[in-house]
Design a protein around this nucleic acid. Structure first.
Lengths: 351, 351
DNA sequence: CTGAAAGCGCTAACAC
DNA sequence: GTGTTAGCGCTTTCAG
């Protein structure tokens, strides 16, 4: 265990008050920027604060304020995909940005194995944070139930599949218009005169994958199952799915891929087989991750979604509750408005 | 701002005590597993805890314990390299593992822009954490001074360049035997009969880069500057450096690359120029990141370092101080023993 | 405008 | 063994 007083004995409000010749309350007011304090004692106080290097004890402050100014971001990633997929990076960037502007800290909790759940549940229930942000939950993820039990405000990143472990309503999420984006992509392919449009989906136990597939089907009402291959949102998965598709339907002339990373894998296979993009096969991705889309050959035409903006939005939503006092007969988790952010096609070279 | 009581009014020790018909102390003892409590009241207490769904208030506990059971991991990454370089992923994995076994939480703070420093400094000084773990600091990074000022125990990942902003001693770090590993790699190349051994270094304002270059020089006392190219630890940087090297010295027959990621970039250039590896040019990397080293063509011979283990070690070091009471006349930051972990060469196909 | 005083919920002596 | 008590450092009425 760490020492009890790692910081030595730091100065307290009391110390500052004594040195400045004022009361604790006055120091508190000055420190917190509460208006009614005369300039003269305020100045003396500030001086004392500086001289002593006083920093308020957060534990004490939290105890009385009942606020933590911290929110947890929980990511469930069986693999270590978290740290290789730029998607999360963008999300976190937006979240962090907005959190900072609210004066709150970001606590990143990540779940690697089933054993981690109790620990995380404990932490979330321990009153360390004012809310939780959660991502890419699987259908049977226990997290929603945990935060509900803890009565912790939460916002989800990405729509959840209905019929899953948690209520369809009552939980707010932020998601991109996956279906609309997919529709626009496929419509573009069709407008290009493509007749055999295939698709590579994400894992179909995730809502985003299903929604994008639905968008594809909205346009291609007559698409056959042989034109659909399931990927896993990885580069390799995209490549594998492309191979499958090519073997099944050598005459396909376009493919809508549900993520840029998978699209990069697909492009690789296409090139290996010496199939020209976009001449022989047009390719459209999803995400518009510039680091990928702009560096493929040819550059990737893809559906743009504002990932960073979605992150910011999640935080804003979390903080938008004006009152935590549960309504009578209410558990405190009011259904919040979920938000669907727009997407749009960015045409580059691949379609 | 979030509501003051996001969790509703949760039950307190007092509530549990009343319900179980015991005193607060008894409840506290039971909850904290302190021995001397008779089984009967203990059982009643546990029952009450369960019924009320009591969870101890961490703020209150911290206030009296002066312990947070949380440590901050601060990463300074100008680019978003944090989330693409598997290196950090491994480090974090080890850290998290060890932290969990100490019952402590990991708070990830990341610094993106200079403006973030004050915020982080404030957080570190706010008494939220019991210690800090820091990585890949640049020569002029203000972080060491900040944690010193805050009197916060800290362990650094990677040796710092001496002559930098912080004391050469007084700060403990964990690092791999970069120099020794580099020596072993170059020695291997020489033993293979290679006569013109080049090297691609990391950014030379980082200790690891310098150390690896020094190891290279230890063996190749007569190496010329034209055989040395500086990279930046990225795939592209490695590729660029390889091109430079090849243009300068078309007759080189081996290259020691200071990271696997850069080595992958170098391999790509070599292949584009139709130079055979290892026949024409032998390549050795550094890190032994399996996801890279095992998937290149040919598989990469590289210097192994136990990154995850280093992460665990950092935590153990942080927790190993037996007392935080500064010795008289001491700031509280005792010099701690730094640790250099061993490295060894893993021979695969590229050399 | 400022100080005194009452807690926030918990732990840890110290009595009983 | 168990209860009583005194704070931990801070905010916040409430007097003055």
């Amino acid at each position: 265990m760490l020492a009890k007083q790692p910081q030595g004995s730091r100065p307290t409000l009391e110390d500052v008050a004594r040195r400045a010749g004022v009361s604790r309350s006055t120091v508190s007011r000055v420190v917190n920027g509460v208006p009614g304090v005369r300039t003269e004692p305020a100045a003396r106080t500030r001086k004392a604060v500086a001289e002593l290097g006083y920093v308020p004890n957060q534990a004490a402050r939290r105890l009385v304020n009942r606020r933590n100014d911290a929110v947890a971001v929980v990511v469930t990633e069986p693999q270590n995909r978290l740290f290789v997929d730029p998607f999360f990076d963008h999300h976190l960037r937006g979240i962090r940005q907005e959190l900072v502007s609210h004066g709150a800290q970001l606590l990143l909790l990540y779940i690697e194995e089933p054993d981690d759940y109790p620990l995380v549940a404990n932490f979330l229930g321990g009153g360390h944070v004012d809310g939780a942000l959660m991502f890419s939950l699987r259908t049977d993820d226990p997290l929603p139930e945990i935060v509900e039990r803890m009565g912790l405000p939460a916002i989800y990143g990405g729509r959840h599949l209905s019929g899953s472990g948690y209520h369809d309503h009552g939980y707010a999420y932020v998601d991109a218009d996956n279906r609309g984006g997919a529709r626009e992509a496929v419509r573009h392919l069709v407008s290009l005169g493509r007749k055999r449009v295939a698709t590579i989906t994400g894992p179909l136990d995730q809502a985003a994958s299903v929604d994008r597939l639905d968008g594809y089907r909205d346009i291609l009402l007559d698409s056959t199952p042989s034109l659909i291959a399931e990927g896993d949102f990885t580069l390799h998965g995209g490549a594998a799915a492309m191979s499958v598709l090519l073997n099944r339907c050598p005459d396909l002339d376009a493919v809508f891929v549900a993520s840029d990373l998978m699209a990069a894998g697909a492009l690789r296979v296409l090139r290996d087989r010496e199939i020209k993009v976009p001449e022989d096969v047009a390719v459209i991705g999803f995400d518009d991750l510039r680091s990928i889309a702009e560096t493929t050959d040819p550059p990737l035409t893809t559906v743009h979604q504002d990932i960073e903006g979605m992150g910011r939005l999640m935080v804003r939503l979390l903080f938008s509750r004006d009152s935590g006092q549960p309504l009578p007969g209410d558990s405190g988790n009011h259904p919040l408005t979920s938000v669907i952010t727009p997407t749009h096609l960015v045409v580059r070279g691949s379609a």
